[in-house]
């Protein structure tokens, strides 16, 4: 099978030893089984995320993203640039669109890029891995490699903000996108229907600076998953995953709740369903253990 080629932008949180490194691990087997080849963009830099605006003005932020686009254009010509992190995807896509719309911004960005020995022509498309799965592979394609259906599991699909807004996945609504629930079904599990916190914000980068306000959001997100009978939350967002998993113990301490709701990535579900090991699925990287999924992963068929 010839593999589909993409220029891959991992982003800071997916580096080795960083907070979403288990995401990075889990996409390997998934991509392998789906015939997707991710070619890492050489020497990529941080996108400046949604919190870089304080010190970084518009042009410095655009230029950081333009550098990644330029590197992809130069080293991996003709390939769509793909990111697994919503914040990276958003920043890159916003940059590509802004530069495309304004000739003067493009000229200014290139003036700055020249300092790093680069130039950007504007030929690269910025996409999210979920778009690749839904649009290029399709749900039937995602189902094909399933060898261990996750039968009997009920899972709340938590989409969050930035994979959903402002761009979202083509054809989906902002209020109630369906693709994550469909992925859960594709691997043989049951989506928690009516989960009303599906697109609620977890507080994002403000989980650090405004912990109480963010933890109120997180509490709603977890509580509703329990209310709908889910035994696990699945999400496409790195910050959502980290925030919703990590702060449950804080909420328990402060508010006397007894939350222990595992939070995993869609890629971990697919990897386990495709027969990947516990390690390959990054399931050794959790603070709240997704026990049932771990059991399926270690089971022989």
């Amino acid at each position: 099978m010839t593999k589909k080629q993409y220029a891959f932008y991992p982003g800071c949180s997916s580096q080795k030893g960083a907070s979403a490194s288990n995401f990075a691990t889990s996409i390997e087997v998934m991509c392998e089984k789906l015939g997707i080849q991710l070619n890492e963009i050489p020497d990529w830099n941080c996108c400046s995320a949604s919190i870089g605006y304080g010190d970084g003005g518009l042009l410095p932020r655009l230029v950081l993203n333009a550098r990644n686009l330029a590197l992809a254009e130069q080293h991996l010509p003709g390939q769509d640039m793909v990111s697994g992190c919503p914040a990276c995807w958003l920043s890159t896509r916003e940059t590509a669109e802004k530069l495309h719309e304004s000739g003067s911004l493009m000229a200014e960005a290139n003036e700055a890029l020249k300092e790093a020995g680069l130039s950007f022509k504007g030929t690269v498309r910025a996409r999210h891995i979920v778009e690749v799965l839904v649009e290029d592979v399709g749900f039937a394609g995602m189902k094909q490699p399933v060898v261990k259906p996750l039968e009997g599991m009920k899972i709340a699909g938590y989409v969050g903000c930035q994979t959903n807004r402002p761009f979202g996945i083509a054809g989906e609504s902002f209020e109630n996108p369906q693709y994550l629930d469909k992925m859960i079904e594709t691997v043989g599990a049951e989506p928690a229907s009516g989960y009303e916190q599906k697109v609620t914000c977890c507080g994002g980068a403000l989980a650090f600076s405004e912990p109480d306000k963010s933890q109120k959001q997180i509490r709603d997100i977890v509580e509703s998953a329990y209310d709908h009978g889910a035994e696990m939350i699945v999400t496409p967002c790195q910050l959502c995953q980290a925030n919703v998993e990590i702060y449950q113990s804080e909420i328990n301490k402060k508010q006397g709740t007894k939350f222990a709701m595992p939070v995993v990535y869609y890629s971990q579900l697919l990897t386990v369903a495709y027969g990947g090991s516990l390690k390959q699925a990054g399931l050794d990287g959790h603070v709240i253990q997704p026990e049932k999924l771990q059991q399926i992963a270690v089971r022989q068929k």
């Binding site: 030893g17 960083a18 288990n22 042009l59 410095p60 950081l64 700055a112 300092e115 790093a116 990287g285």
Partner: peptide, 30 residues
């Protein structure tokens, strides 16, 4: 424990090869 925060990062950790180019590029954009 979950290998998601690397204590060795304090010694340097991840960085770009072309740090200088990035510094100059940001300065220019500013």
């Amino acid at each position: 424990k979950a290998k998601r925060l690397n204590p060795m990062e304090i010694l340097g950790g991840h960085k770009c090869r072309d740090k200088d180019g990035i510094h100059k590029m940001i300065a220019k954009a500013r």
